[in-house]
Design a protein around this nucleic acid. Structure first.
Length: 354
DNA sequence: TATCCGTGGTG
DNA sequence: TCACCAAGGAT
């Protein structure tokens, strides 16, 4: 690029950028990698406490590779996108077994690890090694879409291709670590989605969208689709010792690998729940106690959760299955639980009895 | 290419 | 109350 994009950005970064984030200290490839995975589709303020606790428990790639999956998921509980946690540990095991515990330095090898794509690989290269690699995350997409007035939704291949071209072109040969942090900081602090602070932007002079007064038009909107509504029963089974039954969810799909409350087919009516527990779970239960349901919104559908509390008759045992277990509430909260289930178990008073 | 995968903040 | 979306990647 013949303009002074990177130069202006770096000068702004030196004065106003974020230089003190937790992963900026004791910087190494492992810490950079974990932070980048956590930061996928997740804001900095959300990540910080998770990152600190994660590093306390898993200080190096070897401890992560050797940890129980439940421990890793437990530290991810509430962060969302749990495939990131499963892939993180898979990648850690590969780094230990195939690379002697040392992270690959080249982009191709990094992209071969589960959970690491083009942008994350580039971020690791730039942040950990200060070597030239172009990133393209949500911040960069927004900055570039406005600066060059690139129409269309960034998810569209044609739009994405153009964005990558500009991302590559603007990335400098020197100070790549600072540059990648700088353009993300600009997107997060100045070139925000709503009400960008263009007066304080070091790039406003040559920003086409700003000069046209059209920053609100970029990036282009995603084509919206109607979200389907799904319904499910979630049963709180409590035995005479005050323990509740948890069930491990399948490794794929929503909340994959996490512990949650047992689900029953929504086709069962309230009066059939007792029988459903008997047939589905092999449990002899008392009368169901219906709790008011709530709606949980995901990216692509709404889930209507109908909780029901059922007492379990004394002396009844279920067959020993590794994906089911009786736990006290305190113990349950130490496992990887989905956020709404955690809320349900922590603050049952928040919901109203029917 | 389109869809799936979470959660919390925002207007 | 609710649609929209943020440091993407896998399928």
């Amino acid at each position: 690029m013949s303009d002074r994009f990177a130069e202006r950005l770096l000068a702004w970064y030196d004065k106003h950028g974020r230089h003190d984030l937790p992963w900026h200290h004791n910087r190494n490839a492992y810490r950079v990698w974990v932070s980048e995975i956590m930061l996928q589709q997740t804001q900095v303020t959300t990540v910080i406490p998770y990152f600190l606790a994660f590093m306390e428990r898993f200080p190096s790639v070897r401890e992560l590779a050797g940890a129980p999956v439940d421990d890793v998921l437990g530290h991810w509980s509430g962060l969302g996108y749990y495939a990131r946690a499963r892939n993180l540990q898979k990648a850690a095991i590969r780094v230990v077994e195939d690379h002697g515990g040392e992270f690959p330095v080249d982009q191709e090898a990094l992209e071969g690890l589960p959970g690491i794509g083009r942008s994350t690989a580039a971020a690791i290269i730039a942040q950990a090694h200060d070597k030239r690699a172009a990133i393209l995350d949500g911040n960069v997409k927004r900055v570039l879409a406005r600066y060059h007035a690139i129409p269309g939704w960034p998810g569209q291949t044609s739009t994405l291709t153009r964005l990558w071209q500009y991302a590559e072109a603007h990335t400098p040969d020197e100070r790549v670590r600072d540059y990648t942090q700088a353009i993300m900081d600009l997107g997060a602090m100045v070139c925000t989605r709503s009400r960008p602070v263009c007066e304080r932007c070091p790039l406003n002079e040559d920003c086409i969208a700003f000069r046209r007064g059209e920053t609100h038009l970029y990036p282009g909107p995603k084509t919206k689709k109607e979200k389907p509504e799904k319904t499910t029963w979630m049963v709180i089974l409590e035995d005479e010792n005050g323990r509740i039954m948890l069930e491990r969810r399948p490794p794929t799909g929503i909340w994959g690998g996490l512990w949650s409350l047992p689900e029953l087919d929504p086709a069962y009516g309230p009066e059939e729940l007792r029988e459903a527990c008997e047939q589905t779970l092999g449990l002899d239960c008392g009368e169901p106690d219906l709790i008011s349901g709530f709606r949980h919104t995901f990216s692509h559908y709404h889930l209507h959760i109908q909780p029901a509390r059922l007492p379990v008759a004394k002396g009844i045992l279920i067959q020993d299955r590794p994906d089911r277990r009786w736990v006290h509430r305190d113990e349950a909260l130490g496992l990887g639980l989905p956020a709404p289930i955690r809320t349900l178990l922590t603050r049952p008073g928040q919901t109203t009895l029917l």
